[in-house]
Design a protein around this nucleic acid. Structure first.
Lengths: 319, 319
DNA sequence: CTGAAAGCGCTAACAT
DNA sequence: ATGTTAGCGCTTTCAG
């Protein structure tokens, strides 16, 4: 193993001088610098990152916690984080959880072990209480956690859903259903809250059986449509929190000769290219930006304000 | 900082005993074990991963090189790698390259610095020559690199395209186009080779303008369709290497009243849920399995045989 | 400007 | 069974 000591010996200088050269510190005579660099060249020396990490107490890498990797949502947020991290010389460590609490805790354990300098939670499995003792300014949430000392960036889902409802009401719908990823988790709860508040404000009824859960992908959307078709009392419009799911519904509707939006209107979220291709009215959700902002928050040393991002409606033909 | 030494002191034992307890080594008297564990508890001790990494010369983490994170293909392969890695106690470090050569080289640099124990290339930007000096048994390729000493897992794209051609010929098509991600890179070259070989074997012509590049997502598919519509001499069928692109084509065809498959047949690859939803005939490509196998290859110490995976046709309505 | 030396925190060979 | 000790390879203070 060729280490800093061997090159010091070969260059005829001390290890600290070598270290200075390697880290572009000033105050090294040009002659010695050359000798060191020559020795590095000659011995094919490569710095050992782990030694640096140990010595510095930092790894310049940040962990990202996410449930799944094969969903566009997480790919996009990851892309946002990765881009920003790269700019600042940080690397990404992935913690895929499948929404398993233990897997999530493991990530926090890695943080404590200093394997990563920080953690971004793109989604969360454990309760905040369970996590409380691990949370530091190096931890960033992508949801509206209520503790004001926690760093967070999130989409205003509450307002998003309310705007969606308003829009559907204005189009004459009053029987409206909701299609969600899951019912727990802050983001989902905010959506549900927006849904009920909005309905109440407008004086329209909400039916529990019009709320569909566990909708992640295309197939789920197709299943929901089948279910919808079998219902006695059908909603005339559905707010769907993912374009993937909406796409499944639209595709299935085509097969079953269900007319969109006449028989069923669909108001979607994401504004993924898919929604444009399939002519689905959708709210743009700046997910990638969530990733970018999350990383920026991690870097901020002071207690930064939460970053709140908004959705924007793109009207197309599904409503 | 509470380290192994402080807990040794508190427990009244030596650091090596502490280390033994912490690593579940045998030969520690139950009494001392308890004392150590108590001290750990009391001081809230947490092992420093970097010290372990340095001491062991291993990090139990593997780097994954990929161009983009927001494409289903890479999400799926990542999911495969992550699942297998988790089973074996390894972590994932991400190197997103945007197909930038420098970014890719940086990943190899990290390998040399021992920041990761290995590297999986899901796609490659540099030439094999440029990479040659960095390649070791810790590097796994997801393509058919010809050097027999390199570890590799790949889809038999050559055969896949040839089967696709046969299928289209059998359906009466002879004017066939091809829609690719890119023209360089082993996987793409294999597809092109299959395309030309197949056409030649069947005695059918191939036209250069019927080969489309840079097709990654839905929008690209829509663009290709527009282009197709404007052509004087149109192919009657297109082989498309990604369901995302095919989906864009099908969606756009709907808008322009182009009949699929009557005006244009589409034979796709991936068998993504999208193809099922949109009734697109597609070859299943076991991408996730590529990821799983890639990780397994990394673990194999001997020179393992390359892993070759095959595609399977799912007939639907687009041909 | 440069070098000596004391860490960073853990592992493992060796001795007992 | 347990302790001593020499690393792992780099950074950084302190003295000169």
């Amino acid at each position: 193993m060729t280490n800093i000591r061997s090159i010091a010996k070969l260059a005829g200088v001390s290890v600290s001088t070598v270290s200075r050269v390697l880290n572009d510190h000033p105050y090294v005579k040009e002659e010695k610098r050359r000798k060191v660099l020559d020795a590095v060249e000659q011995l094919n020396y490569i710095k050992n990152a782990n030694a640096v990490h140990l010595s510095k107490g930092k790894t310049y890498s940040i962990g990202v916690i996410l449930p799944y990797l094969n969903l566009p949502y997480f790919g996009e947020i990851l892309q946002g984080i990765a881009g920003e991290a790269l700019k600042h010389g940080y690397h990404l460590q992935l913690f895929q959880t499948d929404y398993d609490r233990g897997a999530e805790l493991d990530a926090f354990h890695r943080l404590q072990m200093k394997e990563v300098d920080g953690l971004i939670l793109t989604s969360r499995s454990n309760s905040l209480d369970a996590l409380a003792s691990f949370i530091s300014p190096n931890v960033v949430f992508c949801e509206n956690v209520y503790d004001p000392t926690y760093k967070k960036v999130f989409i205003d889902h509450y307002q998003g859903i309310r705007s969606g409802l308003e829009y559907l009401y204005s189009k004459g719908h009053s029987q409206i259903g909701l299609c969600l990823h899951r019912t727990f988790g802050t983001n989902s709860e905010e959506r549900i809250r927006g849904f009920f508040d909005g309905a109440e404000a407008a004086g329209h009824p909400v039916r529990d059986e019009w709320i569909f859960n566990d909708c992640y992908d295309l197939q789920d959307g197709r299943d929901v449509l089948s279910e919808w078709e079998r219902m006695e009392e059908k909603p005339s419009a559905l707010i769907v929190t993912s374009d993937q799911v909406s796409a499944g519904m639209v595709a299935e509707a085509g097969k079953r000769s269900i007319r969109i939006p006449d028989d069923l209107a669909i108001l979607s979220f994401d504004n993924h290219p898919l929604s444009d291709a399939l002519d689905i009215t959708s709210f743009e959700v700046p997910i990638r930006k969530v990733g970018e902002e999350a990383f920026k928050l991690f870097l901020e040393s002071e207690h930064p304000d939460p970053v709140i991002l908004n959705t924007t409606l793109f009207e197309r033909g599904s409503v």
